[in-house]
Amino acid sequence: MDVVLLSLLFAGMTITAYLLLNSLYFKYRWTLLTPVLTTTTIIIILLLLFDVSYEQYMLGGQWIGSFLGPAVVALAVPLYKQRDLLIQNLWPVALGVISGAFVGMASGLLLAKTFRFSEELILTVLPKSLTSPVAMQLADGFGGIPSLAAVFVMVAGFSGVIFGSWLMKLLGIDSPIGRGIGLGSSAHGLGTAMAFEYGPEDGSMSSVAMTLCAVVGSFLGPALVWLFF
């Protein structure tokens, strides 16, 4: 088959599956139905079933992936709109975000190093508490594996969503600022969705924390890699 036609087919298949599964998620709002997880699973099954290699799939897949960079740039808009919330709470946000970005990376790095994982895998785990598009680009820059980095980002998100409410109750984190920043700094997008269930202030705080952690992490990550490797 023609390369262009094949690319169109794979891109179209991805978009169609995503839109369908996205509306399914919005209907039930069940974390396990998160569209990235469901769409990825279904596409992998389809590719295996029809014996298509990842390389072939990426002919079309890369078109979709090329929106990642501009989407990260676009995150400046929601952050700008929440600038008042950010400025009013500058000190708690700065402290939470900087500590969160640092602990998120350093703890993953130290744990993975303790268990003697390969350098490639440690560098892949490193940015897991940051939002996927940034985590993947960072992992790529470090010499890790971007697609596995995205998987670890998802594992982090699910960990936060599943154990977050229990942990925060245990530690007495019961303010919108504490919950929002805790969730946004550790469990990024999935955590932010959960924070909105606590309330709009939690949610806004979480999305501010998620975006700022991505920025702080982009500076801290290379510094940590330089220190440890």
Binding site: P92, G96, V103, S107, A156, F163, L167, L171, G182
Partner: peptide, 23 residues
């Protein structure tokens, strides 16, 4: 996977507690 889970919870605890204390 276990490492990512533990690290995520440590991160949430530190950033949540510090920001709540600061505010």
């Amino acid at each position: 996977i276990a490492i990512v889970l533990v690290s995520t919870l440590i991160t949430m605890a530190v950033s949540g507690l510090l920001s709540q204390w600061a505010s």
